[in-house]
Amino acid sequence: MAHIIVVGNEKGGAGKSTVSMHVATALSRMGYRVGALDLDLRQKTFARYLENRLSFCVREGHGLPTPDYRDLPSVNADELEDGENLYDRRLSLAVAGLEDTCDFILIDCPGSHTRLSQVAHSLADTLVTPLNDSFIDFDLLARVDPDTNKIIGPSVYSEMVWNARQLRAQAGLKPIDWVVLRNRVGAQNMHNKKKIGSAMEDLSKRIGFRVAPGFSERVIFRELFPRGLTLLDLKDIGVKNALNISNVAARQEVRDLLKEIKLPNIEINF
């Protein structure tokens, strides 16, 4: 059975597709068979990223390691069992089409609450939740007292993850390994950064996730999208100044991310 990695939260602009692309292609580079699904059926940023990559490889004659992306298959309503949800069937068929041939399946979820996202979370062996390092994004996980910064209780997304964990437990599946990434952490050791870090650590113990460093704010991430490239590809394609200090630091962030996610039986070799 393939190990399923779900990248999700319920807020846009947190870096889900960038994380999805770098994790999926890093695993492909390490020789693993990786399947990819994008559940944002409207924007499809992850799917577009992979489409751009394939176009670049054809246009430039490169053979870059690339995940096996699949669209969700179409299903006619008359094919459904009584009470069966259309989106449940489409996602189930997509996963079934990949799990026998892949070591990992990476599912990128939309930045909103949808039926597909809800079901995908219940399938997750590893759940990766990127958050911008601010209390605006932290509100997705927990409600905070504005005067004391103490945590009042879990918020909407944490409750959805809790429900997904309950469904897995009822089905006799192993627990979700939940990793929250702190993206766009400021370089300076500001007071607000400390408060968020403290709140993250407190909440992680209460609702059961691990905190890991994500990606810094770098222009290079936005520049790579049109060609479908990742930071790990720059040296291979001969990009000028590919190994400048900023890019070397960014490559190390990708390596650190793979280490912190702690996927089973992988050896990081890039």
Rank of each mutant, 00 (worst) to 15 (best):
Q43E: 10
K44H: 13
K44W: 04
K44A: 15
T45R: 15
F46D: 03
R48T: 03
Y49T: 14
L50K: 02
E51K: 05
C57Q: 11
C57I: 00
V58G: 06
R59T: 15
E60Y: 04
E60S: 07
G61K: 12
G61R: 08
G61S: 13
H62V: 05
H62K: 06
H62I: 03
H62L: 08
L64E: 09
L64D: 10
P65D: 05
P65H: 10
T66I: 02
T66E: 03
D68L: 12
R70C: 04
D71L: 05
L72P: 00
L72S: 02
P73R: 03
P73W: 02
P73L: 07
V75F: 08
N76W: 09
A77H: 11
A77L: 14
L80F: 08
L80D: 00
E81T: 12
D82H: 11
D82R: 14
G83P: 08
G83L: 08
E84N: 12
E84G: 12
N85F: 10
L86K: 09
L86I: 09
Y87L: 11
D88T: 09
R90A: 04
R90E: 04
L91M: 08
S92T: 04
G97M: 07
G97V: 10
G97Y: 10
E99L: 13
E99Y: 15
D100I: 02
D100W: 15
T101G: 10
C102L: 06
D103C: 06
F104G: 00
I105D: 07
I105Q: 05
L106A: 02
I107A: 13
I107D: 09
D108L: 05
C109T: 13
P110M: 14
G111K: 03
G111Q: 04
G111F: 02
S112R: 09
S112W: 00
S112H: 06
H113C: 09
H113S: 15
H113G: 11
T114Y: 00
R115I: 02
